[in-house]
Write a protein that binds this DNA or RNA. Structure first.
Lengths: 336, 336
DNA sequence: CTGAAAGCGCTTACAG
DNA sequence: CTGAAAGCGCTTACAG
C-alpha cells in the first residue's frame, strides 16, 4: 500500500536512455550535453530530439563526480541585511541563460559552511564580506575557484574581487554632510574589522581632515546586534557634545539610529543628520527618508557571477572589478 | 608555472585512503560513516581514528549517487521579506548537530528552481509559500520528500505542512482593532491567491461579521511590487470614506502603508491605525512601532526541518504542525 | 562482524 | 566524427 515513497530516482531518465532512443553511444550524448567539440550536426540533432522527447535532465551529482556540478555557492554574512537581496538579483541575471545554478548556504558558521559547500562539489564560491574566513582565503582558493565581494586585499592571482570604492564612498558622505553645514560628523562603524570597514573608516578620516574637521573625528565601533547598536547610539546622542551628523556603515544601522534618535525626541535632520550605506529599499520609505551611498549591489552580484564562471572555465589571472559609488541624498541629511 | 589551479580534488582524501590507513575494507568505512549496523566497536574506533587523522570528509555527490547527499533544499518566494530570515534560523537550529546541510535556491522562477534542486539530488525540499508551484505539489512530492510552510491544503499523505493558524491570526487583528475603537477596518491582501491568503481573508471576514462590522468589510488585493502597493494604499487613503484602520497581510506592506500615510500628512494611529503580520524586526523600530501578528517563524523553520528529516528517514504518514499566533500590540494601533 | 564486487550516472582519455 | 571502456567516490546487496 505504501507506493507513495517511490524508490529513489525511480524512472529517472538517464543518459543511457537518451543514447538508446537516439541510436547513438552514451559518450555522444555526453558530448552534446557539454557542447564539446567533435559532434556532427546530424548526431547533435538526433540527441537533442531524444532529450526533449524523454524530458531528460542531467543529474548534477553524477556530473560532478568527474566534471562539474554546474552549481555555484553563495555565502552571506547576514541574512537580515536587505542589501544582499540586490546582490542575489545580480547573480541571478548573470546565470539566467547558463547551465549554472546558484545555491546559498545557510549556516551560522561561515567556516563550516565553506567546507560543506566544497563537500557538495560547488564548482566555485562567491563569498560576500568574508570576515570570518579571511585567514583561510588562500586555502579556500586553492581548493575551489573563488570570487570575493567586499574584500580589498588581493593575494597573487588566487581569487577575483568585486567591490565598490569604499574609501570614496565614505569621502562622499563627509563631503555631502559638510556641504549641508554639518561639522561634528561621527561615524558608526563595525566592531569586527574587515578590509571594507577599514577603507570606509580611512575615507572618513581622510576627508574629515581635508575638510578641516580633523578634531571632530569620532569613530564608534559596535557589533551588529540590535541591542548593542541601540546602547551605543543612545550613549552617543546623550553625550554632552552630541554630534550633529551620524555616518553609519550600513543602512540597517542608520535605520536603528533614526529609531533611537526619534525615541530621544530628536528631530532629523535638524538635531542630527543620519546617512547610511547601500541605498537599500528602506531608504525610500517616508519614515526613514535616509540618505545613503549606492554601491549597485545588483551590478556587484552580476560581475561576481561572471568572473566566477570565467575562472571555472580556466582563467588564472585575477581580475578586480570596482564600482564607483554615488550618494543619494534624502531628507535625513538635507539642510532644512 | 600555473600550479595555481590545482587539478580537481587534487589530493582529496577518499574513503579508500581511510580504509587503507585503518587497515579495513572500504565497505567498513562506509558503514561507520552511515552509523550502519554490524560494526564492532574496535573496528569503528580504528576507522574514526583514521578519519580524524586524515581529516576525511565524505563527498556529497558521490554519496548521493547511491544514497543521500545530506542536503536539504529551501525555497523562498521573496528574499526581501525579513520574515524568512526567522525561518532560516529555525532550520539551522534543527540541523545544527546533524549531517544535514540546508541550501537555499536562488531563482526568479520557482518551478525551474524545484527542478534544479531535484537535479542536484537534494534529499528533501522545504517550500515556503509555494504559490507558483501549487499545481505541481503532488508531482514534486512523488519525486522528493516534501514539507510545506504556509500551505493549508494537505493532499493524502503526500507531504507535511507547517503553519500558523492564519484564520485565527486575522481574527485577532480585527478583535484588537475593534477593542481599540476602530470600526472601518480595511484589509490589504495579496493579488496572487494562496491558501494562506485565503485563510487570512476568511478570518478577517468572519470576525468583522461577528463584531457587527460586516458592512465595513473591504479587501484590497494588490501585488507585492513597491509601486503597486503605494498606488493602492494612496488611493484607499484618499478615498472619501477613508478607513480608520488598515490590516496588512505582511509587515513589509504595513511599513509601506505607514510611509504613504505619513506622506499624506496622516498621523498614526489617530487618523489611521496600521497592523502587519509576521512581527519582523522592523516592527520595533521607533519610526514604525508596528502592531503585528507573531507566527514564530523560527519555530516554523525548526519544525519543518525536523519533519523533513523524519520523512527522508522513512515516515510515510503526513504530519501537520500548527502554531497558534499571537498579536503584539504597539503604537501603530493603540488608542491614543 | 567483515569484505569483495557491482553499480549509481555521468565524463574522460583513448582507439578506431 | 563516433564509440567502448575505465573510472569518479561512494553505497548496497551479497557472501563468507
Amino acid at each position: 500500500m505504501s507506493e507513495i515513497k517511490a524508490p529513489k530516482r525511480a524512472g529517472r531518465v538517464t543518459i543511457r536512455d537518451v543514447a538508446q532512443d537516439a541510436g547513438v553511444s552514451v559518450a555522444a550524448v555526453s558530448k552534446v550535453l557539454r557542447n564539446a567539440y567533435g559532434v556532427s550536426d546530424s548526431l547533435r540533432e538526433k540527441v537533442l530530439l531524444s532529450m526533449g522527447k524523454l524530458n531528460y535532465r542531467p543529474l548534477a551529482s553524477a556530473r560532478g563526480l568527474r566534471g562539474r556540478t554546474y552549481t555555484l555557492g553563495l555565502l552571506l554574512p547576514d541574512l537580515r541585511n536587505p542589501f544582499f537581496a540586490d546582490i542575489f538579483d545580480g547573480v541571478n541575471s548573470a546565470l539566467a541563460r547558463t547551465q549554472y545554478q546558484a545555491m546559498q548556504g545557510i549556516s551560522v558558521h561561515a567556516n563550516e559552511l565553506v567546507d560543506a559547500m566544497i563537500d557538495r562539489q560547488m564548482d566555485g564560491l562567491i563569498l560576500i564580506g568574508p570576515n570570518e574566513v579571511a585567514s583561510r582565503l588562500s586555502d579556500i582558493a586553492n581548493r575551489v575557484p573563488l570570487v570575493l565581494i567586499g574584500h580589498h586585499e588581493p593575494v597573487d592571482n588566487l581569487f577575483d574581487t568585486v567591490n565598490n570604492d569604499d574609501q570614496l564612498g565614505a569621502r562622499l558622505v563627509v563631503r555631502h554632510l559638510h556641504a549641508q553645514g554639518h561639522r561634528r560628523i561621527a561615524m558608526m562603524s563595525l566592531a569586527k574589522a574587515s578590509t571594507v570597514i577599514t577603507q570606509r573608516e580611512l575615507g572618513y578620516r581622510l576627508e574629515m581632515m581635508e575638510q578641516g574637521l580633523g578634531t571632530a573625528i569620532n569613530i564608534i565601533r559596535c557589533s551588529q546586534v540590535l541591542r548593542d547598536v541601540q546602547v551605543a547610539v543612545r550613549k552617543l546622542l546623550e553625550s554632552p557634545h552630541r554630534p550633529d551628523a551620524l555616518f553609519c556603515w550600513t543602512d540597517l544601522i542608520a535605520i536603528e539610529a533614526i529609531s533611537v534618535a526619534t525615541e530621544l525626541g530628536l528631530s532629523i535632520p535638524q538635531d542630527i543628520a543620519v546617512v547610511g550605506y547601500d541605498n537599500t529599499m528602506y531608504c525610500d520609505l517616508a519614515q526613514n527618508r535616509l540618505t545613503s551611498v549606492d554601491q549597485s549591489g545588483e551590478l556587484l552580484g552580476l560581475q561576481a557571477a561572471r568572473l566566477l564562471i570565467e575562472r571555472i572555465e580556466g582563467r588564472t589571472e585575477a581580475e578586480h572589478f570596482v564600482v564607483t559609488p554615488r550618494i543619494v541624498a534624502r531628507a535625513s541629511s538635507r539642510r532644512p
